[in-house]
Simulated assay, not measured.
Amino acid sequence: MAEYHGLSEIFTTTETSLCNNLFKSSNPPFHSPTALILEISPNPFPITTKLSDLSTNFIPIIKNNCNLDNLEISDPELETFKSKFNGENNNCNVYVAGHVIVFPSYNGFFEKPGLYLDQMFVRKCYRGMRFGKMLFSAVASQAEKMGMGMVDWLVADWNEESINFYEKMGAHYIPEYRLCKLYGDQLQQYAKKSD
């Protein structure tokens, strides 16, 4: 994702930091930073866990028969993105195709809180197969289920493919707003000046 956006020089995330920030919260999913992982398989997913045994209040969305057989997929990083979780059947061949990261948000202009979609990413070889729509639909459905009033996110002004995707969904694109971030050395310097 950082490479896609040309932000590799500021990328500092590690597997440990992701684990600590996304998966070890005592809050239930969607009440703190939450990652949804899009996994695909050429075979139907085996249901090896009873849904009542899950430790979260989010029930995995399993869609079988998405007709992946009819698509010509060439994944040069297939083994790199092989899922570490393959259920009880290690021959299941499950692969990570994308992800979305969300967290709760609030905007003083609206009556209800919402979800802020921080990242949505589908690996290049899986784009154009409706997986982005599937990920976004999972987030929108969860926000609706929780009685929230919005899902909001940012999109780079150069990313016309994504802008078109969002506008076709009915999203409001507001070009007058720009993202501002204070990070790294500048954050530390400013923090010291304001003491």
Rank of each mutant, 00 (worst) to 15 (best):
143 A>F: 02
13 T>C: 10
189 Q>G: 06
137 S>Y: 10
65 N>I: 05
174 I>L: 13
173 Y>V: 13
124 K>N: 13
42 P>S: 11
18 L>M: 08
67 N>H: 15
127 R>Y: 05
166 Y>W: 09
164 N>D: 14
135 L>T: 02
14 T>I: 03
84 K>S: 07
186 Q>N: 11
78 L>E: 14
36 L>G: 03
169 M>W: 14
121 F>M: 14
123 R>T: 00
130 R>H: 15
110 F>I: 05
129 M>W: 09
66 C>P: 02
161 E>A: 12
132 G>Y: 04
162 S>E: 01
112 K>L: 08
88 E>N: 15
104 P>M: 08
35 A>W: 02
190 Y>L: 11
189 Q>W: 03
31 H>P: 00
107 N>E: 15
152 D>I: 03
37 I>G: 04
49 T>E: 15
49 T>G: 08
38 L>F: 04
175 P>S: 11
38 L>Q: 01
104 P>A: 04
66 C>I: 12
180 C>W: 09
88 E>Y: 12
70 N>I: 11
188 Q>R: 09
33 P>M: 03
43 N>F: 07
193 K>F: 11
149 G>F: 07
32 S>A: 14
102 V>I: 08
149 G>I: 04
53 D>M: 08
138 A>K: 05
13 T>R: 09
45 F>R: 02
142 Q>K: 14
175 P>C: 06
54 L>S: 15
124 K>E: 14
77 E>P: 03
70 N>W: 03
110 F>N: 05
22 L>M: 05
84 K>G: 10
89 N>F: 08
